[in-house]
């Protein structure tokens, strides 16, 4: 069992949990992910590692309540435990030779963009962070991102905080203004990563995206997480989750991620029963 030692609601939809997992914390690096399972009846769900503390032996995950499993996870309180927490899985992000980087985060993707920026910042790399949100109510990690960036740009779709516009608008403007980026690291919803990649392509800027497809084991065994990269089948769990954004077939990925949408809606309805059951068990 893996105990929750800290919990924060970052906004109405996004939760931060710090979880005791010494083996994971010992090895975790930016870009890698874990798979959690709340209890015996739950799915196995991958989440990219947001932070880790090797001394405390803890790993931080930040996630949006999008389906049954993430809702069950978000319902756990400090001191409670979850059944399974395995990692670090996947290949860590490669920063070799980077001197100036733009890190682009979209929505809850900022939870993963932030540790990337932090790692680069600590290596002495010049980091411009562009963080995009739909509106001011869902902005997360603003101060944290600001602290680890050379320049920080906050964008909202409706202009309710920061600048009005998409992250791609800002990225293009920065490139056009003469900023020479060795790489762009984009983490967020699939359409955002797709459009960031399209934005950087004409400039030939190396663009790294972090994919989060459906998977079971995270060790290359189920093949559920296969993505087409440069015309070849890759397994995001062992070959990724980072890939060259100019090579990824984003439309295919979006389609594959929709496989259980109908069922997910159904499950969300049953979610209340599950919550009820968990509560009952606690009372007992």
């Amino acid at each position: 069992m893996f105990r929750i030692v800290n919990k924060k609601e970052l906004n109405s939809m996004v939760t931060l949990l710090e979880i005791e997992a010494p083996f994971v914390a010992k090895k975790a690096q930016a870009g890698q992910f874990i798979i959690f399972r709340v209890d015996e009846y739950s799915e196995r769900v991958p989440l990219t590692i947001a932070d880790y503390d090797r001394e405390k032996g803890t790993v931080t995950i930040i996630f949006q309540k999008v389906g049954l499993s993430t809702q069950l996870l978000a319902a756990k309180e400090i001191g409670e435990s979850i059944q399974d927490f395995v990692g670090p899985l996947g290949v860590a992000t490669e920063y070799d030779g980077m001197k100036k980087v733009a890190v682009v985060g979209g929505g809850v993707g900022c939870a993963i963009a932030y540790p990337q920026a932090k790692a680069l910042h600590e290596m002495g790399v010049e980091v411009d962070v562009i963080a995009g949100f739909r509106n001011k109510d869902i902005v997360i990690l603003e101060e944290e991102m600001q602290a680890v960036s050379t320049h920080f740009y906050l964008m909202t779709d409706d202009g309710s905080q920061g600048e009005k516009g998409f992250v791609t608008d800002k990225l293009k403007a920065l490139i056009e203004a003469g900023n020479q980026y060795d790489a762009v690291i984009a983490i967020g919803p699939i359409p955002m990563m797709k459009f960031v990649s399209l934005t950087t392509k004409p400039y030939g800027i190396h663009t790294i995206v972090s994919l989060n497809p459906i998977m079971i084991d995270g060790t290359g065994m189920c093949g559920g997480c296969r993505v087409t990269v440069g015309g070849k089948i890759k397994f995001a769990c062992v070959d990724g989750p980072d890939f060259d954004g100019h090579e990824v077939d984003f439309d295919e990925l979006m389609n594959r991620n929709s496989i259980y949408k109908a069922r997910e809606a159904e499950l969300t309805e049953t979610h209340l029963c599950r919550m009820e059951k968990m509560a009952q068990e606690l009372i007992r």
Binding site: I216, D217, M221, C222, G223, G224, R226, V227, T228, I233, D249, E252, N255, R256, S258, I259
Partner: peptide
């Protein structure tokens, strides 16, 4: 093979 509805036997059986 990347269409929704194609499984490896490993995934399906797991």
């Amino acid at each position: 093979e990347a269409l929704v509805g194609v499984y490896s036997a490993n995934e399906y059986l797991t």
